[in-house]
Amino acid sequence: MAKTARQAALQAACGTTMWGVGGVLSNVIFNTSTASPAWLVSMRLTGLASL
């Protein structure tokens, strides 16, 4: 059970860290290209909806 809780904590940590990394990568994309927030949202939602 302890191992399961540790695994779940690790999963949650990976998930939330990836959210944070995603935010910073969005920042990098805006700084280095002409991509707009609207286009990136379109990509994000279209990609997810197609799943």
């Binding site: 904590a9 990836m18 995603g22 935010g23 994309i29 990609g47 799943l51």
Partner: peptide, 22 residues
């Protein structure tokens, strides 16, 4: 962009939500 869509959104959400069971 690929990581934002599939990693930072889809996979991250699955990892976080599945951890809530425990």
């Amino acid at each position: 962009v690929f990581f934002i869509v599939f990693g930072a959104t889809f996979l991250a959400y699955i990892l976080y939500v599945s951890s809530l069971k425990v």
